[in-house]
Structures are given as C-alpha cells and as structure tokens.
C-alpha cells in the first residue's frame, strides 16, 4: 500500500511535526521507499513466535519508597525556554 500525502499529514500531526509542503512530498517518497523495503517481512512466517520487547529476561527491579530527591525547583526550570517564577509557561491551553 503506497504512502499518500494524507498519510504523511496525519502522522505528522500525531507526531506534532510541522512540515513544509515540499518536505511532505519528499518524506512521502522516502517513507514509501522504506516501507517498500520493510515489506519483505511479509514473507516471513512468524506463527507461534513470541515477540521480543526486551533482550533482558529479568523482572523489573523495584526501588524502596523513599522521597530522597532534594527540592530544587529553580534548577529544574532553569533550562525552560519560558517560565514564570518556578512555573513553566506555555501558550494558552484551550480545553
């Protein structure tokens, strides 16, 4: 199934990527070619095969419930492009 410009626009919106029209077309071509290549997986028989999400076959480790982190709001928001006191500031959110 070829990738359409509509597909590109839809996933670009999901991924919050603004794309110029020329870029949309170029990415459509690229995706089409890459997905064409990965389509070779279609010929692979995976019936009865369990998926691998992790190569480490251990249960997740647990940490003790202790609030050990220091309070340092200034340091945590220091990198923010826009802030108000120790709040982060963003364009108005409309529900």
């Amino acid at each position: 199934m070829p990738v359409s410009l509509e597909d590109v626009r839809h996933i670009a919106l999901l991924a919050r990527l603004g794309l110029a029209p020329a870029e949309e077309e170029r990415l459509r071509r690229d995706l089409d070619s890459i997905l064409g290549y990965v389509a070779q997986l279609e010929s692979l028989d995976v019936s009865g095969v369990e998926p691998t999400a992790h190569v480490v076959d251990l249960p997740t480790p647990l940490r003790e419930d202790r609030a050990t982190n220091p309070e340092r709001p200034e340091e945590m928001v220091e990198n923010a492009p826009d802030r108000d006191r120790t709040f982060l500031r963003v364009p108005k959110i409309i529900e």
């Binding site: 609030a67 709001p73 928001v77 120790t86 982060l88």
Partner: peptide, 20 residues
C-alpha cells in the same frame, strides 16, 4: 511517599516544580 518512577515526594502543596 515518593513518585512511581523516581524519588521525588508525592505530597501536595509544595512550591511549583519543587517536587521534580
């Protein structure tokens, strides 16, 4: 006492972003 995935306090009422 602490958050789900880090050692920050899970309590309310702190200065904004103090528990981060």
């Amino acid at each position: 006492e602490s958050k789900l995935f880090c050692g920050c306090s899970a309590k309310f009422g702190a200065e904004p972003n103090a528990h981060t």
